[in-house]
Design a protein around this nucleic acid. Structure first.
Lengths: 196, 196
DNA sequence: TACAAAATATACCGATTGGTATATTTTAAC
DNA sequence: GTTAAAATATACCAATCGGTATATTTTGTA
């Protein structure tokens, strides 16, 4: 890892929580220099502009979230247990987010949906990948005989993911676990219902 | 209605879509003067600062959304039909939002959760009111004998609302109705399951 | 340890930010 | 129609915005 690569990594690690907390528009270059202890010269020597830092920060946040998520899931064996672990992971997201500021997917999607085209594409890609991942777990469970074969994995994946993301929004702004706990409980009950 | 009141109303109507689309940080005073055709003098003659305009715009957006929602719901008779109408209302939200930019609750909650205290309080209040409203419809349905009495109205209200808000985020950034349609279908199926 | 190259800091840029003091216009009551 | 008050426009403010040219320092290599 060259010096430049290390500095890029350092900048991204220090600024990712900032972008995730205050948003792209809400994060200034002064915020970035303060968080890193570096000057604009160093920032612009390693990145083309603020957009490039924000995008790298988003990718870093997503990588971190996914790594933690998968780590949690691979500690158990069955597909059902893995999906339960995934739901528990999100439940703990409220009080202990892997990256400060909550879910980078949710935050970035909301800020980017109307007026930030390139970021929108990046988020869309990650969202689709997430649905594919959850759906693949459900499909695996069906093939393994854990879940009844009449379920629609893709649709159920959307239901799980959307309800958890909505609960995350609610719980974070409300500073209360209640919405998330209720939603996760409901999702786990669905998992029980489709088990055989 | 005095001139001042009319102007305040005019400013709020013209700027609400702007705040809802670009967010508080993303909306500048130049944006506001352009959207209204007024000058800063007029803006600051009627509002103390940008924050006050944003808050008034949020309240206006919420009023508009709730009015449309309730209008849609009161065209049918049973509690089940009303809840179905509410879900259909959200489903159409994706392509035809009452206020440009999507759901003001979702947008404002995400931007305000970490670093805008006063707005957070306002959003929290509206979120709680929404859950109370949905829960009251479910309770009404139970008392009227439409729904089985074993349901937990408040928990179900959270599930409905959170999943729809999550789907709204997804569908908006993806520019596709699919996530919302899947989620709404699922919610309506729950309504069928708890019906008697 | 000398030295070229790479990385970072410094000092600056014009544009835009939210906000205000004051001049001008419009409004509404008489 | 006159006039005081209310509302709006104009012109300005310091601060901050994202970004850059250049000077200085640090790095890795011979």
């Amino acid at each position: 890892m060259t010096k430049a690569e290390r500095t890029r990594q350092f900048i991204v690690e220090k600024t990712a929580p900032l972008f995730n907390t205050k948003g792209y528009d809400g994060t200034s270059l002064a915020d970035l220099t303060e968080a890193t202890g570096l000057t604009k010269g160093a920032l612009y020597g390693n990145f083309a502009d603020k957009d490039e830092i924000a995008e790298a920060a988003f990718h870093y946040s997503m990588k971190k979230v996914k790594a933690l998520m998968k780590q949690e899931m691979e500690s158990v064996k069955t597909y059902k247990q893995r999906l339960q672990a995934l739901l528990s992971f999100f439940a703990r997201y409220v009080n202990k987010p892997p990256v400060a500021g909550g879910c980078p997917l949710l935050n970035t999607a909301i800020e980017a949906d109307d007026h930030r085209t390139s970021m929108r594409r990046v988020v869309t890609k990650e969202l689709m990948a997430t649905i594919d991942f959850i759906a693949s777990q459900l499909e695996g469970g069906v093939k393994a005989g854990e879940f009844i074969s009449t379920i629609k994995p893709r649709e159920l994946a959307y239901v799980f993911f959307c309800s958890v993301e909505g609960a995350l929004m609610f719980s974070r702004v409300e500073r209360s676990n209640e919405p998330m706990e209720i939603v996760v409980k409901h999702c786990k009950k669905i998992l029980d219902q489709i088990s055989q």
